[in-house]
Design a protein around this nucleic acid. Structure first.
Lengths: 193, 193
DNA sequence: TGACGCATGTAATCCGTTACATGATTAT
DNA sequence: ATAATCATGTAACGGATTACATGCGTCA
């Protein structure tokens, strides 16, 4: 009857918070900073999302308050149920792999620009990802070589390969540009001015 | 005073619709199918989003009705202002590059699983992307080699390189797994059961 | 004493998904 | 007849962003 009763399908924010707190107890403020420093590229989240979610997690018994610091600072830690919930999430079926990629979308419509501007777009793209790549490579140099924190190195490597791939793609695509305005094959549409 | 007056910042859906209609006039129903076939991997959209947006675009004079088909079918085409709007979008600054990647997020917390299960996770990941890769490579074989429709080949190549990258990453990460439970470096946190 | 960083929250809004709802045409 | 497909919409809900709002502690 009810295909999707009560439970939401997404909620990755909860598990991310639980996962971070499984590492060590933290306050909402600290979590916000960790999100912004380490998880921003994989799952951005701001304090206005984090604070209410922490309250919910506490109400559901997945985390608990440990101590109260100076200016109303509240430190949280995972309960055993909380850690179990992250594990359940990691074990259960496929993660949501839907992407929303504005740059790829723009590439799809590059044929609407005159060749000169399409080339400029690809060069901007390559430059951006070259910058990112350099940044990640610098981070990789100082990353720990073992222990749990090493998991973040796995994700960093993901980022490095991703950026490198995009630099190479943009360079390849620039070479392909001439074929875009070649013969009048399917799709048609007026050529750019 | 008002940092973000009235206007929305995102709205990539509008430009995607305009871009597709710049190729050839289509109905909402056709657009829905094209989205699902060609753009799903870059920018998913369902008919319940598309129909209202088409109405808005028409009200704003960026598209216009051309003909009315059999069962109330409404065909739209871009106006010159509409095409100009896509070009503006392509030319103006950086696309929004924020990603939301649940798989990468999970990788970040792999250390919470016993080694056996972490390995299983990486193998599932590799298998999934191997499947995608094969699918895209099949599509690439029949893709047109020139003309505007070739732009979709650029994006397909993006997909191919992306999936290949992820297969290789997962295989590499499997080799790195032992170092995850190595020394007790920063981050700490109890080891998995 | 005033600026900055720490620290926590709420409200308004927007985007996207899921579900609800309806009707016309074509093929079997 | 009736099922499938074509075809267009609206409503409810949830997640995420932006902006609003407040107060404590420390250091120059």
């Amino acid at each position: 009857m009810y295909p999707c009763v009560g439970q939401n399908r997404h909620m990755a924010l909860r598990q991310a918070l639980l996962g971070l707190l499984a590492g060590r107890p933290m306050s909402g403020y600290e979590l916000t900073k960790v999100f912004d420093r380490s998880l921003r590229e994989a799952w951005p989240a701001s304090h206005s999302q984090i604070y209410p979610e922490l309250a919910r997690l506490q109400r559901e018994g997945l985390i608990e308050r440990t101590e109260t610091g100076p200016r109303g600072r509240k430190t949280y830690a995972t309960t055993p149920a909380g850690v179990e919930e992250v594990r359940r999430w990691l074990r259960t079926g496929e993660p949501d792999r839907a992407l929303r990629n504005e740059a790829a979308l723009q590439a799809f419509f590059l044929w609407l620009l005159p060749a000169e501007e399409a080339r400029a777009w690809l060069r901007r793209e390559a430059a951006h990802h070259r910058g990112k790549l350099a940044e990640y490579e610098r981070q990789a140099e100082v990353a720990p070589t073992s222990g749990p924190a090493r998991a973040s190195r796995l994700v960093l490597e993901w980022g490095i390969r991703y950026e490198r791939m995009l630099v190479e793609w943009a360079e390849w695509a620039e070479g392909e540009l001439p074929s875009l305005r070649g013969g009048a094959s399917a799709g048609a549409g007026r050529p750019p001015p």
